[in-house]
Design a protein around this nucleic acid. Sequence first.
DNA 1: CTGAAAGCGCTAACAT
DNA 2: ATGTTAGCGCTTTCAG
Lengths: 342, 342
Amino acid sequence: MERRLNLEDVGRRAGVSRSTVSRVVNGGHVSSETKRRVEAVIAETGYRPHAAARSLASNSTGVIGLVIPSAAGTLFDDPYFGRLILGISSATNEVDMTLALFLFGDGPDERSIISRVVTPGLVDGVIVTATTRGDPLIDHMQGTNMPFVVVGRPDNAGSTFCVDVDNRAGARTAALHLAGLGCRRPALIAAPSNTTAGVDRRSGFLEGLAEAGLSVEDRIVEGDWSQESGRRAMDRLLAERPDAVFVASDRMAVGALRAIREAGLNCPGDISVVSFDGIVPPDLTAPQLTSVVQPVTEVGERAVRLLTTVIAGASTPEHVVFPTELAVRESCGATPTAEPEA
Amino acid sequence: MERRLNLEDVGRRAGVSRSTVSRVVNGGHVSSETKRRVEAVIAETGYRPHAAARSLASNSTGVIGLVIPSAAGTLFDDPYFGRLILGISSATNEVDMTLALFLFGDGPDERSIISRVVTPGLVDGVIVTATTRGDPLIDHMQGTNMPFVVVGRPDNAGSTFCVDVDNRAGARTAALHLAGLGCRRPALIAAPSNTTAGVDRRSGFLEGLAEAGLSVEDRIVEGDWSQESGRRAMDRLLAERPDAVFVASDRMAVGALRAIREAGLNCPGDISVVSFDGIVPPDLTAPQLTSVVQPVTEVGERAVRLLTTVIAGASTPEHVVFPTELAVRESCGATPTAEPEA
DNA sequence: CTGAAAGCGCTAACAT
DNA sequence: ATGTTAGCGCTTTCAG
């Protein structure tokens, strides 16, 4: 097993010092003549700088971490995280960094992995997906001096960098849309109230309803994001004879659609449904879901860019929130529009 | 900005040398008295070893890479990769390593990311998911001396470590099951023939059919894994009036089910379907899919363990292949069994 | 524009 | 059982 080529070796072959080689590798000032010679040697030897050595000397690793808690089971049943990872990964490639993934459940391993995330010299910064309210992970991160941004809206983060979508406004739009269609007895299948997204979507919807002079009264059931919970929720709701329902997530909406069908009712004929996410492929359901679509991939990309600024030293917390778009399809009973409404 | 605490500092506070501290951190032999003292200092200072420095000195990073090519769009629409990542991530946590994710599309960035994967000092080894035949990535990896294992069955890898599922046997079982149910005009919606999984599932199915004295004749259409392709394939196939169809993936099967329904036919009444993957939640479809389930998560976990042996120096290539299980549900028309058949 | 030299924080012989 | 001493391969002043 031969020793790995290092800067010194390359320098020797090119007749220059290791510093010069380092300069051509990192784009420093080098005469074009020597530069050419060094590059030739690098090309023919296939030299690649040693990442760990570089990290140690430069105090920067070139890797960013993505932390997703309670990844356990449900995680990838929902396309949400997949999309987010895609966005983050592509942005990460773009800036020539590498992505480290930290998934963890609720086991005792949590503590250990949580501390691995902030190991010095491992990552330059991390993106934390915070879905639950009062997330202890956020508190923990604030106690360290590891740069981080959170995806979502943590309620216990006085001042952190974060990127989120406007859940409240999106849900409000859904309410207004339903009201505009003439619904009289709206219902709500809410997302868990221990998540900020759940809270925001609920209050946004109620707000929109109020503006239109409507109210859900007791036609409101809380699901747990799962399709099955959506189905059960709709089942319960059906007894109240709602003429429209806003479901706080696509997945739960798929379940709701099923409950409606199984009850022998028709959507949108008997009941309109509007969901949130816009992440389930339209073709997957019949009728196609009208939903408030959130730009998940963009959120991921933005999070990476934001994180790079934090790593670079940005210190005044920035909150970026993306708008959502109502994609009108079949399930609400309106005539689908080519252009999504705002 | 105060300097980061290092071994020397901790040693000074505890009145010992840095090597001793290193020993207590890494579990070397230290008298219980000093060990206690050092641990106290570590606890009160919150000292954490610097990952890059450690990597450089020990020539081992503690991170493994996961490479997923052509991640582009379709990737996360299919729960397959999510499950795989889950398995890999959990195994990775278990052995106290961290996971680096390399996703890449077909753009020009491919070259650059592909070379980043083999950057010395970045990862200790990588898991490559190879789906396509003659995958150039495999050739590339073989040209380096980076430890790697492949998930899947590369056809251009004379001798590599790999873990796969027995696609052939699983598909054969599906054929036999359908034959046992009395089908006479079986059809096949195949997976892309430029993937080894596609090839294996096809030949396994044909083999099983032949054993039962049946044949697909020209009732065979190739899909591209997407649900839509499954739907179109079924549409074409319907003209041939098959009484059973084996669909090489769950996703395509969902499309096929839809085509059957839209043609006004009934499954399993008019036509039985058996799919491959067992990855779509049964509740998602009506009727529930009978399918050949592959243990994706286990494959991921095994890949990690195998990789650790390669990193440790294992040199005689090992191929581990997992068996599949036929989960009999509603879509084949048989009475669902509690115990899945072999 | 280029070379020399001093670390970055840690591990691993090698002494003691 | 513990301390001493070399590096690991790179970046980065500092001279020239």
